[in-house]
C-alpha cells in the first residue's frame, strides 16, 4: 500500500499528499502522523492537499481527527492548498470541516503556525512576568 511521506522541517512536520486519498491511506497517515509527532516533539503539522481533486466526507473527517489527535499531543494542524473546486464541493455538500485550520498555501500555513507559537510564547512570558511581579509585591 502507498504511504504518504511525512517530512520534518525545523519545528514543523510537513505532509504533502500527492496520491489519491483512499480510506486505508488516510487511516495509515493518521497513525504515522501521531507516531511522528511524539517521536519528533514537533509543535506544528502542515498538511498540503493542493494535489487532491476530491475530498470526500471520510477524508474530511480523517483530517479533523488528525487535527484533534495532534492538538492532544500539543501540535497545531493547518490544512493548506485546498483547491477552489474542492472548497465549492464541500460547501455544496454542507461540510465546513469545523475544527480544522486552513491556509492558502504552505508558506502562509507555516507563517500561521509561527505566529501562533509566538503568541503562545508571549502569553507564557506575560504570565511568568505577572507571577514574578506579584511575588515581588508579596515579598517585602
Amino acid at each position: 500500500m502507498e504511504r504518504v511521506p511525512i517530512l520534518k522541517i525545523g519545528e514543523i512536520l510537513l505532509v504533502s499528499i500527492q496520491i489519491d486519498m483512499e480510506d486505508q491511506v488516510a487511516l495509515q497517515l493518521q497513525e504515522d502522523l501521531a507516531e511522528r509527532v511524539v517521536a519528533t516533539g514537533c509543535h506544528g503539522v502542515v498538511i498540503d492537499i493542493s494535489a487532491l481533486d476530491i475530498v470526500d466526507s471520510f477524508v474530511g473527517r480523517t483530517l479533523a481527527t488528525i487535527a484533534s489527535i495532534s492538538r492532544v499531543l500539543d501540535a497545531e494542524t493547518v490544512v493548506v492548498g485546498m483547491r477552489p473546486a474542492v472548497a465549492i464541493t464541500l460547501v455544496e455538500l454542507g461540510l465546513s470541516l469545523p475544527g480544522i485550520r486552513t491556509a492558502l498555501n504552505v508558506e502562509l500555513g507555516m507563517a500561521l503556525l509561527a505566529r501562533d507559537r509566538e503568541a503562545a510564547g508571549a502569553l507564557d512570558f506575560a504570565a511568568l512576568d505577572e507571577e514574578a511581579t506579584s511575588a515581588a509585591v508579596d515579598e517585602p
Binding site: 485546498m82 472548497a87 486552513t102 492558502l104
Partner: peptide, 12 residues
Amino acid sequence: LKTVVAARLMGA
C-alpha cells in the same frame, strides 16, 4: 455565506 465558507475552507 457559501462564498465566505468556501474561502474559509481554503484558508482565507
